Simulated assay, not measured.
Amino acid sequence: MKVINFAEHNSVINNYIAELRDINIQKNRAWFRQNLRRIGHAMAYEVSRTLQYSRKMVQTPLAQAEANTIDDRIVIGTVLRAGLALHEGFLDVFNEADSAFVSAYRKEGRKEDIEVCVEYIASPCLDGCTFMLVDPMLATGGSFNLAYQAYLTKGTPAHLHICAVIGCEEGVERLKQLFPSDDVTLWIAAIDPMLNDVAYIVPGLGDAGDLCYGDKLSE
């Protein structure tokens, strides 16, 4: 798996990450969601540079013009609910893409006992597509892996792009083991050093789903 870590280079994404982490700015849910969307815009642009293109003709009011446009059939998949704002950012860029959704959540507990559950999936056929699996947080890697395994029941993509906002070294290493092929790319805006005892990324930013949409009742 190839890893593209945006934090290794100076770009406006670093500003968005700083605001996502800031406990004072986090009080504004709309701005938190907007920063996730803006990271989606920037990240999707970078992913677009790796896709397949061909020259096509476009009719203008005056004459025909040539343009190199994307040939890939793109499907953007996300994990409910935290991934929705990032998903919207990708859809703003790839406006003709199809969408896929899976419900994957973890039962809270110690890192050693974390259980990830998948209960719902809605997806088009994924055979031969370029699949972008987007979710803000890469902690243990369990949610990404189970979500992708669920999506595979709907077909096998030709190319896989895993797109996250903040991850930890442990989760990145696990994904490298799960997806050893060079045909898979992880795009990530920041990689933090560790997980705490309840598998939250440190320093991280907290619970992205709660910060986007409000607190939830735990079963």
Rank of each mutant, 00 (worst) to 15 (best):
Asp127Pro: 05
Thr78Arg: 06
Val116Glu: 06
Leu178Lys: 07
Glu170Gln: 14
Val58Cys: 08
Ala85Arg: 01
Met1Gly: 10
Gly89Trp: 00
Gly89Met: 04
Ala189Thr: 07
Ile25Ser: 15
Ala82Arg: 01
Tyr120Cys: 12
Thr78Asn: 09
Cys129Glu: 01
Thr78His: 13
Glu19Trp: 03
Tyr53Lys: 13
Ile201Pro: 00
Phe6Ile: 03
Phe6Glu: 03
Tyr45Arg: 11
Ile74Phe: 06
Gly209Phe: 00
Ala30Leu: 14
Val3Ser: 05
Ser11Met: 06
Gly83Ile: 02
Leu138Phe: 07
Asn14Gly: 09
Glu119Ser: 15
Ala85Tyr: 02
Met43Asn: 03
Ala65Trp: 09
Ala158Ile: 05
Gly77Thr: 03
Cys125Arg: 11
Leu146Tyr: 08
Ser123Asp: 10
Thr185Pro: 05
Ala122Thr: 13
Arg55Thr: 15
Ala139Asn: 02
Ile23Asn: 10
Asp197Phe: 03
Thr50Met: 13
Leu84Arg: 02
Phe32Gln: 03
Asp210Val: 08
Phe90Gly: 01
Ile201Arg: 00
Ile166Glu: 01
Arg29Gln: 15
Leu211Arg: 04
His9Phe: 07
Val134Tyr: 00
Met43Trp: 02
Ser218Asn: 13
Arg33Asn: 07
Val134Phe: 01
Leu160Tyr: 00
Leu211Tyr: 07
Asn24Ala: 10
Phe90Ala: 04
Thr185Val: 15
Val79Ala: 03
Thr185Glu: 14
His41Pro: 02
Ile70Pro: 03
Ser218Ala: 12
Val198Trp: 11
Ala82Ile: 08
Ile70Ser: 05
Pro136Tyr: 01
Ser99Arg: 09
Ser103Met: 14
Lys216Ser: 14
Asp182Thr: 13
Asp197Cys: 07
Lys56Ala: 12
Asn14Tyr: 04
Pro124His: 06
Glu219His: 14
Arg37Ala: 06
Lys2Glu: 12
Val47Tyr: 02
Thr140Asp: 05
Ala139Cys: 08
Arg174Trp: 04
Arg55Pro: 07
Glu19Val: 06
Arg38Ser: 10
Leu146Ala: 09
Gly214Ile: 11
Glu112Pro: 04
Glu19His: 11
Val12Ser: 09
Asn196Val: 05
Tyr105Asp: 06
Gln59Met: 14
Arg81Met: 14
Ala122Trp: 11
Pro136Val: 04
